[in-house]
């Protein structure tokens, strides 16, 4: 069964199309990823699916409720973990959860029981009475994760769940997300611009660029599309004509002073390539990654370095407020 189905979902800001006729379906129980660079339209899509932003055209169904006509029913069906901190740091962890339970109209006994359960799930039981301002970034994220699923939503939205966290906290968050997906049996839709995150967590993912889907499949199927090993060569004035004549080179792409080649059996054929291509500064051989997939479909790389992620989208949403 589909838990989310979008129909030509579109959002324009002052003539700029942030999300362009998005059509996708998310199945019940899966972890679905939206992977793309900053400003690709991921957060805008989430904002529309969570009823915080009205689509310019098109619509979507979440848990069979229409996001435009039945926003209240949609809100009751979802939990959201936002990109920026969304807990109140002058309250304790427990108080933040209690506030959430009240906002969602949970009866007191169920609320207290769920607070215990979700705190245990993210290992914050010992810290429940500490002010959130004393939490580390990773702990705060875990608290917000716990809060997002406290009211038994059918779908949990995670917008860049590990943005700004150190590598260790990121792996911890991944483990929690996988565990709660298993234990709570809910569908999760997450956005990320981290390749490893998408690869690790998602059952299926959509590569999204300029508000459009470039590809949609499981991470392993997406990587199969590459059809060989990847050889990344840094070289000035590559001898592309000769390279293209080699029968084991399946694909050639030039970008920012690098050449990316898709090669059958790279370990045997590397020597021939290096002899042919020109004056090589550096070379890297690896199995296909999502980064290669992204390059394959969009002709550019996702820059993982820009960890301020979503800034572009935020600026966009700032602008939209003036409308």
């Amino acid at each position: 069964m589909q838990i989310i189905k979008t129909e030509n979902l579109t959002k324009k800001f002052n003539g700029f199309t942030a999300v362009d006729n998005l059509n996708l379906e998310v199945q019940e129980g899966e972890i679905f990823g939206l992977l793309g660079p900053n400003g690709a339209g991921k957060t805008t899509s989430i904002m529309m699916l969570t009823t915080l932003l009205k689509p310019s055209s098109g619509t979507a169904k979440v848990n069979n409720f229409d996001i435009v006509n039945q926003p209240d029913a949609v809100r009751k069906s979802i939990g959201v973990v936002f990109q920026d901190p969304s807990s109140d740091d002058t309250l304790t962890g427990y108080e933040n959860l209690k506030l959430h339970g009240l906002l969602y109209g949970m009866p007191a006994d169920l609320r207290e029981q769920r607070i215990k359960e979700v705190l245990k799930l993210v290992d914050l039981t010992d810290r429940r009475n500490d002010l959130v301002k004393k939490y580390s970034g990773g702990m705060r994220r875990r608290l917000e994760l716990a809060r997002g699923l406290m009211h038994h939503p059918k779908v949990l939205f995670l917008d860049e769940p590990t943005l700004g966290l150190d590598p260790q906290s990121r792996t911890t968050i991944w483990a929690y997300v996988q565990e709660l997906a298993k234990k709570e049996k809910i569908s999760i839709i997450l956005t990320t611009h981290y390749m490893d995150e998408a690869d690790q967590l998602c059952n299926r993912l959509a590569i999204i660029d300029h508000g459009k889907i470039s590809a949609l499949d499981s991470p392993s199927n997406l990587k199969k599309v590459i059809g060989g090993d990847v050889v990344l060569v840094k070289v000035e004035n590559p001898n592309l004509d000769e390279i293209k004549k080699l029968d084991f080179v399946k694909k050639t792409q030039v970008h920012d002073g690098y050449v990316t080649l898709t090669v059958a059996n790279a370990s045997e054929n590397l020597a021939r390539i290096l002899q042919t291509i020109g004056k090589v500064e550096s070379v890297d051989v690896h199995l296909p990654t999502l980064n290669d997939v992204f390059l394959h479909y969009t002709g550019k790389e996702i820059r993982e370095g820009s960890a301020e992620g979503g800034w572009g989208e935020r600026v966009m949403s700032f602008r939209s407020r003036k409308n």
């Binding site: 969570t50 009823t51 915080l52 809100r75 936002f82 901190p85 807990s87 109140d88 969602y104």
Partner: peptide
């Protein structure tokens, strides 16, 4: 400025 307002606005009230 943080996303706290969104947390409140996305609640079913």
């Amino acid at each position: 400025k943080i996303d706290f307002l969104k947390e409140v606005l996305v609640a079913p009230i």
